Computed example of a mutant assay.
Amino acid sequence: MITTSEKLSETDIIERILAGEKSLYEIIVRRYNPFLYKVGRSYNYNHEDSQDLIQETFIGAYKSLSQFEGRSDFKTWIIRIMMNNCYRKKEKSSFKNEMVQDINDNAKPMFSNSNNDTGKVIQNRELARIIEEALSKIPFDYRVVFSLREINGLNISETADLLNISESNVKVRLNRSKAILRGEIEKAYSSQELFEFNLIYCDAIVEWVMKKIN
């Protein structure tokens, strides 16, 4: 297992991978596994399908690594690839025009909790089931905005860019998704706990991806 992930930037890693150090791609896989998994679940794909999409995404990203120019954040770039794969697997929902409501541009993420130590939290399976079920009932256009903004931590601009909608529409959809969910989970846990991606699954995907690129 690579142990230098915290010391290397994406730019450093990519340059070294392209120079022949394929083993460093493990850092990319481990670093972005949880984000891609949450994207897959936001499309209502089950665990197995989400894993398949993640693997496809990492292989596609590896093949296209030389095309990453650093114009956007790497996380945004690889999430876009994952979303494109999700779109191809499921028909893209059509987005309706929405009236912009009065929303605070500086609103903090719904589940922000700086005091939370996710490494010490024991997964509450029943709570996870309730949250996942609640999210699955939200219309897709709201659910995917909630996933990108609240669960994966992208900002309004990045979310709008990924979905090809206006920032105002992002704010509207985010506000509505929170209204639907708040009653069930407002007293609950941090965003990182939603769809927590067990390390055993991360290891399995790392092994699969690294075999493929080698």
Rank of each mutant, 00 (worst) to 15 (best):
N85T: 03
R88N: 14
L65K: 06
N115Q: 12
K96Q: 12
G60H: 02
D12Q: 13
N104W: 03
D52Y: 00
Q123H: 12
K38H: 05
Y32N: 07
C86Y: 03
R125L: 15
S114H: 07
R80S: 15
E98L: 08
W77E: 13
T118K: 12
I13H: 05
R31L: 04
I13D: 09
K92E: 15
E10F: 04
K108L: 15
A61N: 04
W77H: 11
M110P: 03
S66V: 02
F58G: 05
K120T: 15
N106D: 15
Y37R: 03
R71K: 14
N124Y: 09
E56Y: 00
D102N: 13
D117A: 12
I81L: 13
Q101E: 15
S72Y: 08
D49S: 06
Y37C: 02
S42F: 00
Q67L: 10
L53H: 01
R31T: 11
S72M: 07
L65W: 05
T76K: 12
I79R: 02
S50P: 00
R125P: 02
I79H: 05
I130M: 13
S64F: 00
Y45I: 00
R129N: 14
E48F: 01
K75L: 14
F35T: 08
L24C: 07
A19R: 04
L53R: 03
I28S: 06
I103A: 14
E15A: 08
E21H: 04
R31S: 11
Q51V: 06
G60D: 11
N116C: 14
A19C: 01
V121M: 15
L127V: 10
L18E: 11
Y87A: 12
